[in-house]
Write a protein that binds this DNA or RNA. Structure first.
Length: 461
DNA sequence: AGACAAATCACT
DNA sequence: AGTGAT
DNA sequence: GTCT
């Protein structure tokens, strides 16, 4: 619906709340949903974004900074409307004919839902109500195909116990994917090459350090991915945004010859090859990769004798192959269930959700992003250390990369984080896993931050 | 020519 | 303060 | 590299 770029985008993101996100292989459905929500709340400064992911289309909807900026005044008493139940919410949203009169109220509801509120009794239910609203609409669209989208079957919109935020939050989080992998994904020949160039140019101090240039290729990829046809002539991309003279020439060469000589040249360059290989090690970035190259290292085996590597980097090296290996979706699902069960054992009521690419519906994941909170707003404190200890004792977690605790230091905005390696029960194969514990009041932010793919979050329209 | 891609936190 | 990850 |  409009643009949120750069700083502006970031500001809006910081002040935003994810109302919901969903997935589908049907572009039409996503468009319908987006239009619906934009007429409902778009006029109030709420933004939405959608994008093609590998497994289908994703849709996001969130409030903007104007809304977030009212946060402070709300806290000091000028409360906007509070919605205490699904029913009451509907009263103001169902009647689309009197839309004009209601949009303002609707926006305020979003405010309630989205603000980083620290008031006495934050109403997570608001956010949940809107989620349901969207869910409802999805069901309508989907009903002809398969109404029962949610595996848990618990996101029934008829639930009206706003008094039970625990259940509500779970509902909003456990949206499953509705359909099968069926993306257009033409022009892979081009995006693949651009993807390689991104890495080659990445890093201000790398072999060819040029972050800006790297980002230019990065921006072009989603533009090309969205094209509903296979590019057969440069004329078809000539006036696309993010594609200028140079990329135009690149595309032309690729469609004419099937390759890009520029890339071929890079790939035969030992320095470029080595530095980008080193950069693939977890913990090693462009700067370190270059230093290692200049020290004379040429292979990963060389690095194993390098004492200057940090603890994390050594682990990244040791488990280089493991970490690169993707995790089948069903295994991620199992591990999510395991983590949920362990969470319940340690802290009843705790909410554990696997976000990231899993939540975006991909059929395999490079790693696991676990987002956690507790509906009472305080029990999450001190949870992560116990959680990690338990998981290590049972040999689910194997190696630590980063562990940072913030929640115990008074502030309610502290997010506890753990990065490490884990294994599927019975396997030795290690996987990257992130555990994040959010205070309830900013849980939604965590969810959107860890569900969205970065490209998607930057987009507009 | 100059801007463009934020913020936060851990580790060294 | 630089580097790196998310 | 792209865009203003």
């Amino acid at each position: 619906m409009s643009k949120t770029d750069g700083k502006e985008w970031w500001e809006s993101f910081r002040g935003c709340v994810q109302i919901h996100n969903c997935f589908s292989s049907s572009l039409e459905e996503i468009h319908n949903l987006r239009n619906y929500m934009e007429t409902k709340a778009g006029a109030n400064g709420c933004y939405s974004g959608g994008s093609l992911d590998e497994e289908g289309y994703s849709y996001f909807f969130y409030g903007l900074k104007e809304i977030a900026s009212e946060r402070g005044t709300n806290e000091s008493g000028q409360t906007s409307r509070e919605i205490h139940s699904d029913t009451e919410y509907r009263k103001h949203t169902d009647d689309k004919s009197s839309h004009d009169a209601n949009t303002r109220t609707s926006g305020n509801n979003l405010n309630d839902a989205g603000g980083l509120k620290t008031v006495d009794d934050p109403k997570t239910a608001d956010f949940v109500s809107i989620s349901r609203e969207i869910e409802n609409y999805r069901y309508k669209l989907d009903s002809k195909a398969e109404p029962g989208i949610t595996a848990e079957g618990s996101s029934s919109p008829s639930m009206s116990d706003a008094a039970n935020p625990s259940t509500d939050i779970s509902d909003a989080s456990n949206v499953e994917i509705s359909s099968v992998y069926n993306p257009p994904d033409l022009n892979r020949n081009i995006t693949e090459i651009f993807g390689k160039l991104i890495n080659i140019y990445r890093g201000t101090t790398s072999a060819l350090g040029d972050d800006r240039r790297s980002f230019s290729y990065y921006k072009a990829i989603p533009v090309i991915e969205k094209l509903p046809f296979k590019i057969e002539s440069v004329d078809q991309v000539r006036h696309l945004p993010t594609i200028g003279k140079s990329l135009e020439d690149h595309i032309n060469e690729i469609i004419m010859t099937g390759k890009l000589s520029k890339l071929e040249h890079f790939e035969t360059d030992e320095k470029v090859r080595t530095v980008s290989l080193f950069g693939e090690v977890w913990g090693i970035g462009p700067a370190t990769a270059l230093k290692l190259y200049e020290k004379g290292h040429r292979t990963l085996d060389d690095l194993k004798n390098e004492e200057s590597l940090s603890h994390s980097q050594k682990l990244g090296l040791k488990y280089f192959d493991d970490i690169k290996k993707r995790i089948p979706r069903h295994e991620v699902k199992d591990m999510e269930a395991l983590l949920q069960k362990v969470g319940q054992d340690i802290l009843p009521g705790v909410i554990v959700v696997c976000g990231g690419s899993f939540r975006r519906g991909k059929s395999s994941c490079g790693d696991m992003d676990i987002i956690t909170t507790h509906p009472d707003g305080k029990s999450h404190k001190g949870f992560l250390p116990r959680y990690v200890k338990y998981l290590k004792d049972m040999k689910f977690l194997r190696e630590d990369l980063v562990f940072s605790i913030h929640s115990t230091e008074g502030t309610d905005t502290g997010v506890d984080t753990y990065f490490g390696l884990c294994t599927y029960p019975g396997q030795e194969q290690q996987h990257r896993i992130d555990l994040k514990v959010y205070p309830r009041d900013i849980y939604a932010f965590g969810l959107v931050a860890w569900t969205g793919n970065d490209v998607l979050n930057r987009r507009y329209e």
